Amino acid sequence: MDQRLLNWGIFLLLCLTWGSSFILMKLGLLSFSPYQVASLRLISAGIVLLPFFFKFIRQTPGNKIPVIILSGLLGNGIPAYLFCIAETRIDSSLAGMLNSFTPVFALLFSLLLFRAPVQRRQLTGLAIGFIGVICLFLAKGVDTNQYWYYGLFIVGATACYGLNIALVHHYLKGYSTLQLVSISLFFMALFSAPVLIFSDFTQAIARSDNAWVSLGASMVLGVMGTGVASLLFYQLIRSAGAMFASMVTYGLPVVAIGWGLLAGEHVNGWQVLCLAGIMGGVYLVSRK
Rank of each mutant, 00 (worst) to 15 (best):
I43W: 05
A95D: 03
G19D: 02
A204Q: 14
V155M: 02
V168I: 15
I85R: 00
L111N: 07
F186H: 07
L163Y: 06
A95I: 05
L70E: 03
G96N: 07
C135V: 05
V285P: 01
Y81K: 05
F233Q: 07
Y150D: 10
I90C: 10
I278W: 00
V181G: 01
L73A: 13
D200K: 15
G227K: 13
P117V: 04
F32V: 15
R121F: 02
I90T: 14
L113S: 11
Y234A: 15
G28M: 11
A245D: 07
Y234I: 02
R89A: 15
L14M: 12
W259V: 11
K140F: 02
L94F: 14
R287V: 06
T249R: 03
C160Q: 00
S31K: 13
S176L: 09
R115A: 12
L113C: 14
N210G: 06
L6D: 03
W259S: 15
F109H: 02
L112D: 04
I78W: 00
L82Q: 00
G225H: 10
C274N: 09
G241S: 09
G222V: 09
K173N: 10
M25D: 04
S44P: 10
G77F: 00
G75Y: 01
L284Q: 06
G9T: 14
G264L: 14
I128D: 06
C15V: 14
A263W: 13
L136D: 01
F187I: 09
V104H: 01
K55W: 12
